[in-house]
Amino acid sequence: MQELVKKAKELIESKEVDLLIGYQSDGEKGAKPLFVKNTQQAEKLIFNQYCLNNLVTYLKRPDVKALKKVAVVAKGCDIRSFVMLLSENQVSRDAIFIIGMTCDHVVSPDGTGENEKCTTCKVHNPHLADVVLGAPVPEKIAKDKPVHYAQLEKLNAMSQEERWAFWQEELSRCIRCYACRQACPLCYCERCIVDFNTPQWIDTRSNPRGNFAWNIVRALHLAGRCINCGECERVCPANIPLMLLNQSLQEEAQEKFAWEAGYDPESQPPLTTFRKEDDEDFIR
């Protein structure tokens, strides 16, 4: 990763950026975020198949936002979340330097092999970056082909009662640590709905009512916005299959609005726009 270290040093030395967020190795089979502020720290930068974290999530943090310019190491999938931040006016394009990394797939250190999200990836080669590093990777899926998530099939085949029982069991383990929210690049609200108490919209206790309300409201707030980076599910200490919720809504957005989030910064998410020709069959 000579190339990456060299580019990072260049950006830091020239003072083009105040901070660079990248990856460092974490044991033999692992990587973790690294905040680089000097060239010595830049030496630790790596990029490999264990670089799972979506580092774009740090761009929402107040202390990072306050900096003049920040560089971030990002895979194609991560850049999709950056595109969403751009189209929702959460970052200024000039304030961020994207070091795009080509990527065939990422691998969890637990030995489960290629990450599930990589099987539907259309951006192995970064689609928006200030510099792209790494050899080009052949794209396997055409841009305009709708994505289908295989793991949803089991859920969709269930009866309503079975689904209810399934989610009751899964969500009972939610301890309301908000790791899903904090790791999500698109959960950027300065004050989250769950932190509001006038009125208290969502029960903050980790009881069935609170857990259902929290997880469903979060999924709905991501409808048409989630870019399938899978971070919420990956960071969940309780192993709750949160992506099932997000992916259902993604398929919905494709079906109803022919929309996939995170590719084009010029286009607007379906729930923030209105078009006369939109199918409104949900209004009954």
């Binding site: 905040f35 309301r176 208290q200």
Partner: peptide
């Protein structure tokens, strides 16, 4: 700042911790 700058401020660590004991009090 150096060792904890990558903390993204969730509560996973404290909730799985056997000794973390902070709590909130709410009415319903």
């Amino acid at each position: 700042e150096e060792v904890a700058s990558n903390c993204w401020s969730c509560a996973a660590c404290t909730y799985v911790c056997p000794t973390c004991h902070c709590f909130d009090i709410t009415d319903d």
